[in-house]
């Protein structure tokens, strides 16, 4: 409803443009008319502000004129005659506006439109209830609950960052418990990883092969020295994790078995593949052949 009225109002604005008339032709405008003009402008502004963002107060009048004039090539005198003509017409025309005096939050109206005018049956007062319930649930314990939550979060963060902070203090002693600089980056990285990020932001994805080789070699060397020193010092370290080679599937050479791998004279099938043996005529082979 509102949209239609607004449309009507906007359309009228283009045709009549009463405020333009006032600014350009000073002669016919009486006090009452100017009031009406002000009103109209206020209505337009309200409509605009409801749809978009609030306008700045008191836009400059000469600028408005320049912007709103659709035909700059016409001389000014012509315009004056034009406007007066429309104004005389206007007295006879009765403008009926079906405007909505009820002020509403436009966004709420739009969401309501979505819930009410969708093809689904409207849920009974879900939005209104939610809006009402939230503050009531919060209000009684608001100060306590909020501070507790804040402290809780801060403590968690501190616990998470403690090892980073301890290493950073060894190099540059800082009394604060807040992570700054590179430690801050590291802590956010850890946080992201904890929240389920695939890879650390500090790991460089693309680089020259030689660099990568160097990096891995260096890391390996460091690990080796660490283990060696620990062994010499009699410190028991965690078990070394060997990288496992991934199973590469069956050999795709000529003469190999159609399914599984031949190892040491026996055909090895993975557990999941034994279904094939159970019902040979129902299941096609992985490579598309039928048994």
């Amino acid at each position: 409803m509102k949209t239609t009225t607004m449309k009507a109002a906007l359309r009228k604005r283009k045709r009549i443009t009463r405020e333009e008339l006032e600014h350009l032709s000073p002669s016919p405008s009486s006090a009452s008319e100017s009031d009406e003009g002000e009103d109209l402008q206020a209505i337009f502004r309200r409509a605009f502000e409801a749809k978009f963002r609030p306008l700045e107060v008191a836009p400059k009048k000469p600028k408005m004129e320049e912007e709103e004039m659709p035909k700059p090539e016409e001389p000014e005198e012509d315009e004056e005659t034009d406007w007066s003509g429309i104004s005389s017409d206007e007295d006879g025309v009765e403008i009926i506006e079906y405007s909505d005096t009820h002020t509403r939050n436009e966004e709420a109206a739009r969401s309501e439109y979505k819930t009410f005018m969708s093809s689904k049956p409207p849920t009974t007062s879900s939005t209104a209830l939610a809006a009402k319930l939230k503050p009531t649930a919060k209000d009684p314990e608001d100060p306590d609950e909020a501070t507790h939550l804040k402290n809780d979060l801060a403590l968690q963060r501190l616990l998470r960052d403690s090892h980073l902070l301890s290493t950073s203090t060894s190099t540059t002693p800082s009394s604060t418990l807040l992570a700054t600089g590179s430690t801050r980056h590291k802590s956010t990285d850890l946080h992201l990883l904890a929240l389920g990020a695939k890879a650390s932001i500090h790991v460089q994805k693309r680089m020259p092969m030689s660099h990568r080789k160097g990096i891995t070699a260096k890391a390996k060397e460091r690990e080796q020295t660490r283990r060696k020193e620990a062994k010499e010092g009699g410190i028991v370290l965690e078990k070394e994790t060997r990288e496992r080679k991934e199973f590469r599937g069956r050999e795709r050479g000529v003469g190999g078995p159609g399914v599984g791998r031949m190892m040491g004279g026996t055909l090895r099938l993975r557990h999941g593949k034994t279904y094939w043996a159970a019902s040979p005529d129902l299941v096609s082979l992985p490579n598309g052949r039928k048994t």
Binding site: M1, T3, H102, A109, M117
Partner: peptide
């Protein structure tokens, strides 16, 4: 209706 229920809203479908 407004006198009885201020929360009245009627949507238009053309």
């Amino acid at each position: 209706l407004n006198k009885f229920v201020p929360d009245t809203y009627i949507f238009s479908d053309v």
